[in-house]
Amino acid sequence: MKFLSLLTAAYVGGSLRHPHEGVLHVDDNEADKLVADGVATDVSDDFTAKQDKAAPVETNTAPGGTTDAAEPVNPHQAEVAPQAAETEAKPTRRKAAADKE
């Protein structure tokens, strides 16, 4: 496990993280990838082994416990039913009131 400081916004553990969030604790594979991409610096030397064990690790799992994200439903426009607002009759325009002089 390594501690990284981001230089720019990057995806860490499956979510977009920003430098203002501070130091992130990630696994070695992801740390090597982020450092190689030039978006993070390794600051593991600044932390003790006790802090390494106590810090939670950024993982790539969803809150439900699965790593597979559901595919977003994006049907073609021809497959979508018309919206209710489009099917209702449009209100007729009223004539402007004449000036009463």
Results as ranks from 00 to 15, higher is better:
14 G>F: 02
44 S>G: 00
34 L>P: 01
7 L>V: 02
49 A>V: 14
9 A>M: 02
76 H>N: 11
46 D>P: 00
72 P>K: 08
49 A>R: 03
75 P>T: 11
42 D>W: 07
58 E>T: 05
50 K>M: 09
20 H>L: 12
93 R>W: 05
56 P>Y: 10
62 A>N: 15
48 T>S: 15
74 N>A: 14
75 P>Q: 08
73 V>N: 07
89 A>L: 12
37 D>N: 10
97 A>W: 08
59 T>G: 02
64 G>E: 13
20 H>K: 11
11 Y>A: 10
23 V>R: 00
101 E>N: 12
15 S>D: 12
16 L>E: 15
49 A>E: 15
17 R>W: 04
35 V>T: 14
36 A>N: 09
67 T>S: 11
40 A>P: 08
75 P>E: 08
38 G>E: 12
31 A>I: 04
84 A>W: 10
71 E>K: 02
55 A>L: 02
17 R>K: 03
60 N>T: 14
16 L>H: 06
65 G>D: 13
39 V>P: 01
18 H>R: 03
77 Q>E: 13
88 E>V: 14
9 A>W: 02
54 A>Q: 15
66 T>N: 10
68 D>G: 04
49 A>H: 10
56 P>Q: 08
100 K>H: 09
39 V>R: 03
41 T>W: 03
64 G>F: 06
94 R>W: 07
65 G>N: 04
4 L>H: 02
32 D>M: 05
80 V>E: 10
18 H>K: 00
38 G>S: 08
53 K>V: 13
5 S>Y: 10
95 K>F: 08
100 K>Q: 12
41 T>K: 04
82 P>M: 06
58 E>H: 04
27 D>V: 12
2 K>A: 11
65 G>C: 03
51 Q>S: 06
50 K>E: 15
5 S>F: 07
41 T>A: 06
93 R>C: 03
82 P>N: 11
24 L>E: 10
32 D>L: 06
55 A>I: 07
50 K>Y: 09
77 Q>H: 12
61 T>E: 14
19 P>M: 05
3 F>T: 01
30 E>W: 04
67 T>P: 03
21 E>C: 01
59 T>R: 06
11 Y>R: 07
55 A>W: 00
33 K>L: 15
74 N>R: 10
66 T>C: 09
83 Q>T: 14
57 V>D: 09
45 D>W: 05
